[in-house]
């Protein structure tokens, strides 16, 4: 609090407050009170949140074996995992989204058993492709992070477990994984903010998340800046929540002193 009260910071805060006021007063905000756009925005925020949450969960679940395979797996697992991570990290996410949506989306209707399956009503929509692309992307980046984390678990820790006769899967679940997870938590926080920043790309395949909702407002009302400022504020708030959430996770990290 004391740091905020330095004179120049107060001036900067006042300028920022003035800018926000000016944007609020000079801009056109009546659409925020129209029920039509309210539902659009709320649905958009909700879609962004669950796309993010699910893709992070699925992606991380894939990232653990990807990292493990690269760090200590046999070559026939390590090489494919390495190739997967390189391909995901080496190509634009937008291209991956479009490849899955347009590519798979154009392939599936031609395959009879998919058309006739119960999944078809879901596969005809855009969100499964968005979720798949986002999850694979997160898996690719985090697979690389987990590789580093598994590789940096001190050898002595694992040797001690082996010397006591722990079976391999026990060593993994009780020793390697908890340590690797602890060391990547700060990184994961940052990576999850990056993932949040990647979600608006799925607007290009007709998924109506918050960015798409703001584009709709812009097109309907022919205004440029106000919806952009609004989503910017939404993303800032979501990023803040993610940062605080991971800070909380980290603070729960066990500290054994005795």
């Amino acid at each position: 609090m004391k740091a905020l009260l330095q004179p120049h910071r107060i001036v900067m805060l006042l300028i920022a407050a003035g800018l926000v006021m000016w944007i609020c007063l000079a801009g056109r905000w009546d659409w925020l009170w129209e029920p039509k756009y309210q539902t659009l925005i709320l649905q958009g925020v909700w879609r962004t949140i669950w796309l993010l949450a699910l893709s992070v969960l699925i992606g991380f679940a894939l990232a653990v074996p990807l990292g493990l395979a690269q760090a200590s797996g046999p070559w026939y697992l390590a090489v494919p995992a390495r190739v997967f991570c390189t391909v995901i990290r080496g190509t634009p996410l937008l291209l991956q989204v479009w490849l899955l949506y347009y590519g798979l989306g154009s392939l599936f209707p031609g395959i009879p058993w998919i058309r006739e399956s119960d999944l078809w009503p879901i596969l005809r929509q855009a969100w499964p492709y968005a979720l798949l692309a986002l999850s694979l992307s997160y898996a690719g980046y985090e697979g690389e992070v987990m590789r580093g984390a598994f590789a940096s678990v001190p050898r002595g820790q694992i040797e001690a477990a082996r010397a006591m006769g722990m079976p391999r899967h026990k060593i993994l679940t009780r020793i390697s994984f908890p340590q690797a997870l602890q060391s990547v938590l700060p990184t994961l926080g940052g990576e999850t903010v990056l993932q949040l920043k990647a979600t608006p790309l799925v607007a290009t395949i007709t998924v109506l998340e918050i960015y798409a909702a703001s584009s709709r407002v812009r097109q309907d009302l022919l205004i440029t800046y106000e919806p952009l400022f609004f989503v910017a504020a939404v993303y800032l708030a979501l990023a803040g929540v993610i940062v605080l959430g991971f800070a909380w996770l980290e603070s729960r990290r066990p500290r054994r002193t005795a």
């Binding site: 120049h8 900067m12 920043k197 910017a232």
Partner: peptide
Amino acid sequence: PILRDCLGVYTTMVRALPELILILLLYF
């Protein structure tokens, strides 16, 4: 201190906002 704070605002904002939105905001 002023320059440092201004740079802090710049790096934080850019890193917290989606590139797509920055591109649109800056472009327009």
